[in-house]
Design a protein around this nucleic acid. Sequence first.
DNA 1: CACATTCGTAAGCTAAGACTAACGGTAAGT
DNA 2: ACTTACCGTTAGTCTTAGCTTACGAATGTG
Lengths: 106, 106
Amino acid sequence: MTNALTALAALGDPTRQAIVERLAERPHAVGALASRLPVSRPAVSQHLRVLKEAGLVEETRSGTRRIYRLDPRGIGAMRDWLDAHWDRALAAFRDFVETPPGEPSE
Amino acid sequence: MTNALTALAALGDPTRQAIVERLAERPHAVGALASRLPVSRPAVSQHLRVLKEAGLVEETRSGTRRIYRLDPRGIGAMRDWLDAHWDRALAAFRDFVETPPGEPSE
DNA sequence: CACATTCGTAAGCTAAGACTAACGGTAAGT
DNA sequence: ACTTACCGTTAGTCTTAGCTTACGAATGTG
C-alpha cells in the first residue's frame, strides 16, 4: 500500500524513524540494524513489517539474510501529501489575513 | 518546537491527521472541529495541544473561541526531512544496484 | 546428514496514550 | 449582576501497541 496517511502513521514511532534513517544511508540486514538499536532483533523485525506494509521499505533475500532498503515511492507519497497541505495552508492563511471580521467556520 | 521527528510523531495519530486535513481547508474553532469528528471536544483540544507543541498548528483567540490554523513552518520542516531522506534513498538504491556482490552492512 | 546462522512468528506482559466525564475559567450578551 | 457560550484541564478508565522470550522455518556449510 502506498497511502500517505498509513505511511505517516508508520513513521510515528521513534524506533521506526531511527530504522528509516539508517536505511537512508544504505541497505541493511535485520541483525545489523538491531545491533545498533536499543531493542531486540524481533522488535526490529516487527517494525520492518509495519514499514513494509506502509510501502516505505522493500525486502530482498540474500541467503538466510533479508536485506531491507527504503522504497522511494513511499517517501514520495508522503512528500506529495505534505506539499498539498502546505499549499492549502498558505492559501488558508491568506484568506484568514484578508478577511478580518468573518465567521471562519460553520 | 519545529523538529521534523516530533512533527512526524504528532501526525501518527489518525484523529490528528483528520484535524490537519480540516485545518488545511480553512481555520477552525475547536467546537467546529469536534462537531465533525467522532470524538468529544476535550479530545480535540488535547490533540490540538500536541499539534501545537509539534509546531504544526497556531492558535489565535477571538472572544471565547480559539481559532486554529496550520503553521506552514511545521509542514515545511517535515517536507525538508522527507526530501533529504528521499534523495539519500535514491543514492543508496544506486549503490545497491551497482554493487552486486558486496557486504551491504557491517 | 548434522550443525550453524539468520530471520519471522506467536504468546504474554507492560506501558503509553486516546477517550470520556466533570469541573473551572473567561468572554459576550441581556 | 446573571446567564450563556466556548474552551482548557484534570482524573480515571481502557484499548492499543511496542518489547522480550521462546520456538520453528529456511538457507548455507562441513
